[in-house]
Write a protein that binds this DNA or RNA. Structure first.
Ligand SMILES: [Zn+2]
Ligand SMILES: [Zn+2]
Ligand SMILES: [Zn+2]
Ligand SMILES: [Zn+2]
Lengths: 141, 141
DNA sequence: ACACTATTGCAACTATGTTGCAAAATGTTA
DNA sequence: TAACATTTTGCAACATAGTTGCAATAGTGT
């Protein structure tokens, strides 16, 4: 785990710092997307709020994590598993928000479907967010 | 215009107040979605910030306007043109955000396409937000 | 015009996010 | 490993966004 994180940071040309390791750890330990507040909970008092903001921004810039738009406008972050790189994200998968457990997941294998645009509109990026009940909640109720 | 607004409020079982009229006016005068700040600009000093928050929430509850999720997590509101009613929205159209003029539009006639969910996941609502260049910006450049 | 109810404004508060700057940690090179 | 240059961090202060309780006000129906 530790080594995996260090390798990822090196690959992204980032220096290895305690806060970056700890914040990345949060993502590897959770299979769902995380809000800023979740990360604050995970890292505890160890790091300043501002450091978390800046670290998350750095990770987004470097293509390590991506943001997820949600209907209730909370800011969520998740690891990029696609081949994202600095300045170039390729996360074109669908996101799922469970109305029961409230977790948000990347559906890595569900690609956003094409949609026909009206004349005059040129699409460059498409986000799709699905709400409902997740597989875990469906299995346990 | 004035009459149209009054009728809409009556139909929604809302009392006719100056702030509600003025805020609804903002939406009828703009063809694009509005952020809280846009509405504050439009109504000027006439009404308190808190009143605007509460009025928008009331309109959402009554099915007069709907919120739009955006990738940069700004909260946007637009008139419901579908047959939405109190407690039941039916806005299943695609939303478009122009990277040039920064306006957000409801593509009333573009229905969100179906998407195949993985086993275990049950979808109840789907939001699709497309970014790119709008028809107005494409026409004038 | 009256009484009842719903709405508004104000003040205070919480939450969220940003910026500048000095201190500390990291990476590099000798 | 010690010294140096560069990044990163913490702090303080600020800015913006949104919420709540309560008293004053405005709207509605009779
Ligand atoms: Zn769930
Ligand atoms: Zn994702
Ligand atoms: Zn445009
Ligand atoms: Zn819409």
């Amino acid at each position: 785990m530790e080594q995996k994180i260090i390798d990822l940071l090196k690959r992204s040309n980032l220096s290895i710092t305690d806060s970056r390791k700890k914040i990345l750890e949060s993502f590897f330990e959770e299979d769902s997307a995380l809000a800023h507040a979740d990360i604050e909970d995970h890292v505890g008092e160890d790091f300043d709020r501002v450091t978390i903001y800046r670290t998350l921004q750095t990770f987004v810039d470097k293509g390590i994590i991506h943001t997820i738009p949600t209907p209730d406008n909370a800011v969520l972050y998740a690891l990029c598993k696609d081949s994202c790189s600095a300045g170039h994200h390729h996360d074109n998968h669908v996101h799922f928000i469970c109305d029961n457990c409230n977790k948000t997941f990347c559906l890595e294998h569900v690609v956003v479907p094409a949609v026909h645009m009206p004349v005059g509109f040129a699409a460059s990026q498409i986000d799709m967010v699905v709400s409902g009940i997740c597989n875990y909640c469906n299995a346990t109720t």
